[in-house]
Design a protein around this nucleic acid. Structure first.
Length: 863
RNA sequence: GCGAAAGUGGCGAAAUUGGUAGACGCACCAGACUUAGGAUCUGGCGCCUGACCGGCGUGGGGGUUCGAGUCCCCCCUUUCGCACCA
């Protein structure tokens, strides 16, 4: 054994041993319980960053622990390999996207291997290979046949930087998800859509099953995103044109007697029609033109003023025959509900604001129970509770009914009379999956003038992306590739055109982890039998940023696969952990923007000498110039230290601040472990279990307690940070015991030390696998420790013999006494009462009550 | 504005069921070893009080309890998500 710890040497050597032994290869074994541990696959940008290191350190620690605990673990890795950066490289430097991508994959795979993560590389996939995207195409054809995929002309979100359309999830808040400073535009395009809305109810309802297993935050975000609201659609006829109806959506049909106007979105088709017919004033025409010209950002600007105009038309309230003015206004959204609302100013904040501004009447129709309520007094603010402690007033025959009762009764009436019906609306939309990019999965469809849209026959899949595309063109590279575009129609043989869009890359990541189960299959995306062994994923680990992107799409995809008969379950991910970000302080100069730490001297900008705002601690990012390169840290400290720090510095779901001093602390600990193992590794001859000295017994106890604690911290809570703290304590105890052996160690002492060090080596496996492996070998073992058993502990040896028991007087600590662990309550009280401090403090007082919590404390209540 | 989470030493954090607040680590201080140490080992380290004794202490205020970081109510702050969704 080397006297000093040389991490780089050890790491290379142990990685070679694992590779030679195929330590992380997984195969189906029906006799063993499986555990599928999955981390979100990276985009092959070229370099891994600290966020990846953290993500994968967590996953690897758990995988290793589960493997050692007897599970048949599958722990795969792959590449989300389609996407914009490769295409940009093609445009900027003339690279071939496939070559560029595979080079990046090779270098990142090397980085992951140097970190020693235990992946089964035989299962590796890259989503840009025809062997993979072929199955995207296959899925699309199955969905098309089932009506789950369709094509329509639609107004879509368009990012000018990506130069493509985006799904709603990718344009949240009006900005592109990849370019947070770029507002999306509206464009009208013919697009492919996946019918996500037909799963909306199920997506929402089964979130309840994920509670306790998925982070509350993610569940809340998905609930909000799906956004189900139950209400009714009610038809108002246009006054004077009884055949023409305006359908509104409302969740508060009970307030309909308080409606004082009907408001249409500027894009509403009736407005368009009236404009065509010249049935509205020039004012309305101008307003309409102006509103439609605004982009999403402008329309959503904070505090935007509500603006509207009276159209000159009226509509009839079907419940009471009242004649209501029809307006058009900017705050009514075209994409939600019917694009038309009934405004009830007394019971809706937006309607109130609008109606007050334009002098529309405000009529109360709901009041709290116990109040009579009338409309003699002006309404000063809207009253919006929806609970059943309110009832209706001034509402004809419905007056006096509770809100929920009125809602169902009024919907029934509308249904009877044919002017309305119950209706559930969702915020979530169908998933727009067309992308006007070339580096993506081609769509397996052919457009024929005679036959329409014809799917490519399954036996001719995959539709391969041509390797010789010209990316440096104004137009679409795929459309400019004649032999790709011009194909005969599979049905009639006439000349036809291939679809030249590609799929959203979120399609690739929606099902990639199913492919890991059966990565070579060339007749199906995966064998259902094989998937039924490994799936669902037991633990998924990744960033929160995918809460309503990937994590919704992948739930949808599983339900689609279930309906295609490929799987029998509906939720693909049993447990989800969203790890915190890796952060570092950032620096910003008002003139030179973000600065590297090296460009800040004495708090001033190196370029302009202006004082630098010592920025907030922010997520590491290139644009903020606060990144730390994992490779450099590995060179300095070794992979084990970097991994240990990632797990020790904070609990996994919390943000973590990278700290060089903290990394040094982790390194110091590993060196400390190494040194004590070095000191003892050849001292175990004649070691024998036997009667221990008190100090030796204490160390044994600590060893067994530590095994118990580390096991529990990982298995029950995934609190790797406290597990590490436990191992540090054990190490400290070994040093303390070592310090007591000035006069030499007995054979029993040697046994106890070996037991502690072997336990430590095995407990370290999930955290610092290379070091653990090297220690294990140096302790005289031939087999690979990472694939050996997790240590057991002996409850009897872990049990404390004596306990320090705090004595409280009226809940305040007055003394601590040391008592045998198994002492009776009465004896413990006796010891407490005999304590000097207790006697002094009790003087002149009477004990009223005594509380004993066995093994924890004694509380004397006295007056 | 709505929703969610969080607030504990100089710092990162522990405290698993209401039961010794601050484990473990960083930084700092002292001692030992040493030619030297930014190595290593040992000790100290919430605040006030010179030490003891004692008092205070988990964002602030109230409450429940023998006992509250933990449970309940009100308030403040921060972070995150949503943001005209009728």
């Amino acid at each position: 054994m080397e006297e000093k710890y040389y991490p780089q040497e050890i790491e290379e050597k142990q990685q070679a041993r694992w590779a030679a032994a195929a330590s992380f290869k997984s195969t189906i074994d029906p006799t063993k319980k499986k555990f599928y541990c999955l981390e979100m696959l990276p985009y092959p940008s070229g370099r891994i960053h600290m966020g990846h290191v953290r993500n994968y350190s967590i996953g690897d620690a758990l995988s290793c622990f589960k493997r050692m605990s007897g599970y048949n673990v599958i722990h795969p890795m792959g590449w989300d390999a389609f996407g914009m950066p490769a295409e940009n490289a093609a445009i900027k430097i003339g690279a071939r996207p496939d070559e560029w991508t595979f080079e990046n994959i090779a270098s990142m795979r090397g980085q992951l291997q140097r970190l020693g993560f235990g992946y089964d590389w035989d299962r590796e996939i890259a989503t840009c290979t025809p062997e993979y995207y072929r199955w995207n195409q296959w899925f699309f054809i199955q969905m098309w046949k089932k009506g789950l995929l369709y094509r329509k002309n639609a107004v879509v979100n368009w990012c000018v930087k990506c130069n493509t359309s985006l799904a709603n999830e990718q344009a949240e808040g009006g900005f592109c998800w990849r370019h947070e400073d770029t507002p999306v535009e509206h464009r009208e395009l013919e697009q492919w859509f996946i019918r996500v809305t037909s799963y909306a109810d199920e997506l929402l309802d089964s979130l309840a099953d994920l509670e306790g297993r998925w982070p509350e935050r993610v569940i809340a975000m998905q609930r909000n995103w799906i956004g189900r609201s139950r209400g009714a659609e009610i038809d108002f006829t246009v006054d004077g044109e009884p055949e023409r109806r305006i359908r509104v959506f409302t969740t508060r049909v009970d307030t309909i007697y308080g409606a004082s106007s009907i408001i249409l979105a500027p894009e509403h088709q009736l407005i368009e029609e009236w404009i065509r017919q010249g049935a509205v004033s020039q004012e309305i025409v101008d307003f309409n033109t102006q509103q439609k010209a605004l982009d999403i950002e402008e329309r959503q600007a904070e505090g935007r003023e509500k603006v509207g105009h009276f159209t000159g038309h009226y509509a009839i309230n079907p419940f009471n025959g009242e004649r209501l003015p029809v307006w058009t206004a900017n705050f009514v959204l075209t994409g939600y509900g019917t694009g038309a609302i009934m405004a009830v100013p007394a019971h809706d904040e937006r309607d109130f604001e609008f109606s007050v501004k334009y002098g529309l009447p405000v009529t109360r129709v709901i009041v709290s129970d116990g109040l009579s309520g009338d409309n003699d007094e002006a309404v000063s603010e809207p009253f919006t509770p929806k609970d059943d402690n309110c009832h209706l007033i001034a509402s004809g025959e419905w007056t006096g009914m509770s809100v929920p009762a009125a809602q169902s009764a009024m919907i029934s009436r509308a249904e009877e009379r044919g002017f309305g019906k119950a209706k559930v609306n969702f915020r979530i939309r169908d998933w727009g999956v067309s992308r006007q990019r070339a580096w993506g999965s081609p769509l397996p469809f052919i457009h024929c003038v005679k036959c329409g849209i014809v799917p490519v026959p399954e036996e001719s899949l995959p539709v391969v992306l041509p390797p010789d595309l010209n990316y440096r063109t104004q137009g679409a590279p795929l459309a400019e590739h004649p032999s790709f575009v011009n194909v005969p129609c599979p049905d009639c043989g006439a000349p036809a055109r291939r679809d030249t869009d590609t799929m959203d890359t979120f399609v690739d990541s929606s099902w990639y982890y199913f492919r890991y189960c059966d990565p070579q299959n060339d007749s199906l995306p995966f064998d259902p039998q094989v998937a039924s062994y490994w799936m669902p994923v037991d633990q998924y680990i990744g960033g929160i940023e995918h809460a309503v992107l990937h994590l919704i799409y992948t739930r949808v995809w599983a339900k689609i696969m279930r309906d295609l008969g490929l799987i029998t379950f509906s939720e693909p991910v049993t447990r989800l952990l969203t790890q915190g970000m890796v952060c570092l302080a950032s620096y910003r100069c008002e003139e030179h923007d973000w600065l590297f730490p090296d460009d800040v001297t004495n708090g001033n900008c190196r370029f302009c000498q202006r004082p630098v705002a010592v920025g907030r601690i922010e997520k590491m990012s290139k644009s903020k110039k606060n990144t730390v390169d994992p490779d450099e840290m590995i060179k300095i400290y070794g992979a084990d230290t970097v991994r240990l720090f990632m797990l020790f510095a904070a609990p996994p779901e919390k943000d973590l601040e990278w700290s060089e001093a903290g990394a040094e602390g982790s390194s110091r600990f590993l060196n400390r472990v190494w040194r004590i193992v070095y000191k003892w590794h050849d001292q175990f001859e004649g070691a024998i279990e036997g009667e221990c000295s008190p100090a030796a017994r204490a160390l044994r106890r600590k060893t067994h307690q530590t095994i118990r604690r580390v096991t529990n911290d990982i298995a029950e809570r995934m609190n790797f940070n406290t597990a590490v703290a436990g191992m540090m304590e054990l190490t400290n105890e070994v040093y303390a015991f070592d310090g007591t052996l000035k006069n030499g160690a007995t054979p029993v002492d040697r046994f106890v030390i070996r037991e502690a060090l072997e336990a430590l080596a095995r407990l370290l496996c999930p955290f610092t696998p290379h070091l653990a492996e090297a220690l294990w070998a140096n302790l005289g073992h031939d087999q690979i420790v990472l694939t050996s058993d997790w240590p057991d502990f002996d409850e009897a040896l872990a049990r404390e013999e004596e306990l320090e028991i705090p004595i409280q007087l009226n809940g305040k600590l007055v003394a601590r006494i040391v008592a045998p662990a198994e002492i009776s309550d009465n004896d413990l009280i006796g010891m407490a009462l005999a304590n000097e401090k207790v006697i002094a403090r009790l003087e002149g007082k009477q004990i009223i009550k005594t509380i004993v919590v066995p093994k924890r404390l004694v509380n004397l209540v006295a007056k």
